[in-house]
Amino acid sequence: MSDQTLQLEAVLKIHLLLVDDESEFKEVMQRHLSRMGIRLSVSECCLDALELLEAQPIDVVIMDMNMPGMDGIQCLRKVKERWPRTEVIILTGHASVKSGIEGMESGAFDYCLKPIDIQELIEKIELAAQKALINQEDDIP
């Protein structure tokens, strides 16, 4: 089985959550991902996201760093603390070495810069999905 088919299978098995307050980006992502048959939920801010995570299992989270309310790193830490098997991809329009390292140290799966090519982001999601499924199989973070 090639890597590609493995990933595509993985991505169809997962539940994805997009946390971003930028409505245009959210719409574009929603259109693309639903066309691919991916199960997707969206939320505007970290607190909403945490509520959603509490209510149902989520495998992969895509999270913008700069949102109203709680800052991205804090939110990431909360998610990884409570749901260590969930993989989080960080997205940011304000790249900084400091936040990049903080994000990775706090357990992010990847740290991506906006503007991001939609295809590239989908590839990252596929990899994260694969990892999330392995986490479930192995029962390890």
Partner: peptide, 20 residues
């Protein structure tokens, strides 16, 4: 500065992953 910062961040984050 945006370009320099973005590329430096990519390099650092990826080196973090390599070590990990």
């Amino acid at each position: 500065m945006t370009f320099i910062r973005a590329r430096c961040t990519l390099v650092t984050v990826n080196v973090f992953k390599i070590i990990h």
